[in-house]
């Protein structure tokens, strides 16, 4: 079906939290480069940094519950030649310490690697305070920052290794719950490209992070209805792979974006900005519609907020109907 050696995700996929891939990747990055160091704000288990901490205790710094300090200490470590990974819940980092990131990491252009776990409503029972939805918008707006969102645990590991070799400030958003693994060790990843996981001609489903799985399932359902959807996985939200996105929009002339975050300023916002300037295209943005989440189980929240495959299918039918109607006029 694709050139990308994807996993067999459609029937009974193996699931794992993508933060685990980060934890494993960080240990491997540490094995590869002695300058890789890590700091955490009292969430080593949650962010999966404990693995690095256990293997390299002398290269790990426990910051305590102090996210402003987390990123500024990170800036100092980078200034001294280290490659610091700093982690917390995304609601607190980059949620609480945005100005420190802006000044001491981005304007200062220090290659600090910011890991924000527990993004999206899939965080579940903890509720709205801990379901970070605005991180893409907050990080995307900063000059020098690279914004990354892995589809699954396997890709999160690859992204972590790529971050360790990248000389710019990076942000990676992670999720709490186990989600289907859709990629394999052979699936390519580099910082920058968007990947066409499924070729199609009728509509482009552009997804990032945990939502790429939902977009792929939606495409399978649409195929049964005779609609041939293209699925583009966009792990690098900034800088955007303009060429791949514009080419797909040019081909299908219909775009749906899917993300587990606010569409205002988020991934959907990024795609809308690009298309509005370069290739105005009818589109729908699926994501959080200017509201907060709430407590619940992952599956019921993903469903309630309209982020699952079923809702992507509905949106696709809707936008295709409008197109058909306009063509008849």
């Amino acid at each position: 079906m694709t050139d990308y050696n994807l996993a067999d995700y459609s029937k009974k996929p193996i699931t794992e939290p993508n933060r685990k891939g980060f934890g494993l990747g960080l240990v491997e990055a540490g094995d590869q480069d002695v300058n890789v160091v890590a700091a955490c704000a009292d969430l080593t288990e949650s962010t999966q940094m404990y693995m690095f901490q256990e293997k390299y205790p002398d290269r790990f710094i426990e910051i305590g519950v102090a996210e402003q300090n987390l990123v500024t200490v990170g800036s100092g470590l980078a200034a001294a030649g280290k490659i610091p990974f700093v982690s917390s819940y995304a609601a607190f980092s980059p949620g609480r310490n945005w100005e420190q990131i802006r000044t001491t990491i981005c304007l200062n252009n220090q290659p600090v690697k910011i890991i924000g776990s527990h993004t999206g409503v899939s965080v579940g029972p903890d509720g709205a305070t801990h379901q970070m939805l605005e991180d893409i918008a907050l990080m995307r707006v900063l000059p020098n920052m690279i914004v990354l969102a892995p589809a699954d645990s396997v890709e999160a590991k690859k992204i972590t290794l790529a971050m360790a070799k990248n000389d710019r400030p990076n942000y990676m958003r992670l999720a709490r719950e186990a989600i289907p693994i859709i990629t394999t060790i052979e699936t390519p990843f580099e910082i920058g490209p968007a990947y066409i996981y499924r070729q199609g001609v009728d509509i482009s489903l552009m997804a990032t992070g945990t939502m790429t799985y939902q977009a792929l399932i939606a495409a399978e359902i649409l195929a049964k209805d005779g609609i041939n959807a293209e699925v583009i996985h966009v792990p690098t939200i900034k800088p955007l792979d303009r060429e791949t996105i514009l080419k797909s929009a040019q081909k299908t002339r219909l775009v749906i974006t899917v993300e587990e975050g606010q569409i205002i300023g988020g991934f959907g916002g990024a795609i809308a900005e690009l298309l509005a300037e370069e290739l105005p295209t009818p589109m729908r943005r699926i994501g959080m519609l200017d509201r907060f989440g709430e407590s619940g189980e992952m599956d019921e929240l993903i469903n309630f907020f309209g982020l699952d495959a079923k809702h992507i299918v509905l949106a696709a039918h809707n936008i295709l109907e409008i197109k058909k109607h306009k063509q008849l006029q």
């Binding site: 290269r59 402003q68 990170g74 100092g76 980078a78 200034a79 001294a80």
Partner: peptide, 15 residues
């Protein structure tokens, strides 16, 4: 923010 950056540099030197 300066003191915490100083901490980061001092930590790196200690490491």
């Amino acid at each position: 923010c300066g003191l915490s950056q100083g901490c980061g540099i001092a930590l790196a030197h200690k490491m």
